[in-house]
Design a binder for these strands. Sequence first.
DNA 1: GGACGAAATGTCAACGCTGTCTGTCGATGT
DNA 2: ACATCGACAGACAGCGTTGACATTTCGTCC
Lengths: 341, 341
Amino acid sequence: MTVQQRATLEDVARLADVSSKTVSRVFTHRELVAPETVERVLAAAKRLRFRPNPIARSLRRGGSTDTIGFIMGDLNNPFYYKVAAGMERELASHGFSLVVATTDDTAEGEERVAEALLGQRLGALMIIPVADDQSYLEGERHLGTPVIAIDRPARNLVADSIVLENHRGVFEATTRLLERGHRRIGYVCNPASVYTQSERLRGYRDALAAYGVVDSSRWERLADDLSIPADRFVADLLGQDDAPTALITGNNRVTIGALRVLRDRADDGRTALVGFDDFDTADVLGVTVITYNPLELGRAAAELAIERMKDPAGFTRQLSLPTWIVERGTGERPPSERITA
Amino acid sequence: MTVQQRATLEDVARLADVSSKTVSRVFTHRELVAPETVERVLAAAKRLRFRPNPIARSLRRGGSTDTIGFIMGDLNNPFYYKVAAGMERELASHGFSLVVATTDDTAEGEERVAEALLGQRLGALMIIPVADDQSYLEGERHLGTPVIAIDRPARNLVADSIVLENHRGVFEATTRLLERGHRRIGYVCNPASVYTQSERLRGYRDALAAYGVVDSSRWERLADDLSIPADRFVADLLGQDDAPTALITGNNRVTIGALRVLRDRADDGRTALVGFDDFDTADVLGVTVITYNPLELGRAAAELAIERMKDPAGFTRQLSLPTWIVERGTGERPPSERITA
DNA sequence: GGACGAAATGTCAACGCTGTCTGTCGATGT
DNA sequence: ACATCGACAGACAGCGTTGACATTTCGTCC
């Protein structure tokens, strides 16, 4: 393959017999150029396959603002990629492009990746915070790059944020189980020490407390090691003496793990189950879930970013997106009084 | 929020009392600068929150080659995002960043989006082709931007490509069903008129032909309208007179649709099912699938791109990635002789 | 002691583009 | 006939950085 040189304004100008400035004008303020000149320039440009160099253009204009960064845990996770999808759609419709970077859900990853992304001049940065502290972004924010925290608020950083109504979703789900007569309700999550989970857990505990159940620690399994499959915690919980009659799982991974355990135990519909996060085959499996619209989460975040880019000095905003329950069967099971030791 | 000015080499140089070139050197060829000078410069840079401007840098160096574009159908699809995930990982480990753009699986979308992405100077372009013709990329390729076609070969364009062994996977799956005694084997897919599906369909027909089944059109449902849920085609096929005893579904959407239909019909394990593409809960549901490694597909594509960037003049390569069958139950059912009209 | 070379730093121009300013030319008005 | 003006095109500089080359400094060697 022969590689040919990329044409510049100058080349086009020479071919069209005008100055380079005129060519530039054709590509920016076309109305200031005489029609026949425009035509001549365009013909020359086409012949040379000329395309204005956006690098040079943004250097001249100061900062490339049409690329937006998104730092997330891992593209290989339905939640994250759906958020990214919603975001990409919204951004594309406004002429922005999306650069993605993943942290592998580790705090070190986050700062490293952020550093790399910020190297490029970004119009804005969206991030699903993992680390305990985002103050390292303070400098960049100060330089005018809007930062939008998604799913979890940023810590030690003034930033717009958009989160889910985690507490409310789990509170309602738990209340429904309580209304149906369940008292021994389990809660399993992994990881547990992130904002979303602590909110969800709070929802669970608050609902229980409203029904007089104060110490639920016996039915909680709060893990923090993603290398251990959630299955184990669920199996452990269901195997204990006064096993719960209902189970709430803190995210889709745990829900799927729970399904696996219930199948293996031939539980056969005795244990009620409500999972946080919807997933592809939840309807086929009849699983009741606490859901929300991840595409909308991404879309709204993108919208927030675009708004903030227009008005960098405005007040930061904290939005939260509704969650709701989709009843499909597993969550509507009554408590089964099985024989316990 | 007060927005402060971004520091330049010049600012740092002034503060550190050296020339801007020395500051530049500190950030590029540090070994050429005296240790104490380096220290002084770094201190100044830190104080001013200086970060070299990559725009200016790449303008000077000619072309920004550390951003790779990926054009895919829709991020909101497990297949695409897993490919993207594998890609992102590989690229990140080599210091590249990934810009994603989606076409909504339409040909017009593809060219529009490609045009927009190519506006930025990309190091390489990866694309899952949708349109019938990628010759519009010829110009860019000629200017030295490597183009890698993923999942489907590019048409009318010289490009590296990496695809799956679609034919072989379906051929084997069909053969296994035939070996188990199935003769009426259905094939459902939507869309049908894309490279991957025509390959898969060929695998299905070739396997049947090897067993003497020549005209299988009675059991084929090849649709091309994504707005119609696959459920309908499956239901239609299973409802016909000599309904198939086994079903092969051309992608995960159809597989999940088929599961829904089988559940609704209380089919109860009578119809065998093998689906192309694995999915999250396939193990819970016991679904036999033809699978492959989508992360590896992305990773290999990224590798190919990186290689091609180093050697733009080399011979283009066509790779194909293995597919294999994971038996989980639904594919191992024997033909059930139900009463047919 | 002066020539020499290596190390450290500096000067300058250029990457491709666009904002600002200036210049040209023909048309218009009096 | 001449001043005036609008429409258009060009000259120039500079965005922030770096490669090529120049310069300075200093230790070393005969």
